[in-house]
Amino acid sequence: MKLVLIYITFIIIITFIGLSSCTERIDIDLDSDRIRLVVEGNITDIEGDNFVKLTETADYFSSTAPKTVGNAELIIRNGDQTFTLLESNTEAGLYKMPQGFIGVQGETYELKINLENEVGGHKEYNAQTTMPLLSDDIDSVTVEWFERFKGWSVRLYAQEPPRVDFYMFNGIRNGVLITDSIHEVNISDDRLYNGNYTNGAIVLLFNEEQLETGDIFTLVLSNITKEYASFVNELQTEIQFKEPMFSGPPANVSSNISNGAAGWFTAYPSAFTTTIVKEIPVE
């Protein structure tokens, strides 16, 4: 549904603006703000895909990769179990859950961070999240050419559970993740098809270049928390092109990390459904 609205907005924008307006770079002087800790933490039900990344914020126009925060002590508690994360040897600031760990639906996870040096005025940071239940009653997925968008549409055929759900959709092409940045994923609530059969609802759209007929495409459907859905939506709003007709004023994205840190600690289960990308119909 949000997809449809985004498309409508996009069409309106390009039509009215595209013809007579122009865009050019401009020099702006911006102030600096204090440094904060940034936490990117994911718990999933896939082995090896459970990690926490720690970095720092930077000036807006700094043109380098973010500074990583190494040598921190990280633990995740689940009930009476405690897991210690180990810093990767190859990537500084990346802390991984122990071998064999898999997140479980319905479980609550508590993250505790203890830094070697203060960042953003603190050494200790916490966060908490619960992994939602998976909507796994999926029949199939198709990837068809959508003439209207001049691109590929991924359609889902599934029975949506009659409870409040939030989804994150990712796409994999021939084993490689297409949506490798958080701004490319599709977040959706179940407002428009709650409890019903989704009947080919479009859950992802890709450009012509991103897929080819015959590719093996896998849709990754993940159930996420309402708060994480809001966070990703806010993030996508903040990085997309703003124009005075539809965009509200810019605002900081939310965070579920304590002590003013940015980022999010999230947990989600995923379902993988594979299909072959269909042929483009001949006119």
Binding site: S32, R36, E40, T55, D59, L235, I239, P250, G263
Partner: peptide, 22 residues
């Protein structure tokens, strides 16, 4: 107008954070 005064990276994306409103 509200402009960014800093940024961070999350999920391979650069995210701005902002000054006070306007």
């Amino acid at each position: 107008v509200t402009f960014p005064v800093g940024r961070f990276v999350y999920g391979n994306t650069v995210v701005p954070f902002y000054s006070g409103r306007n």
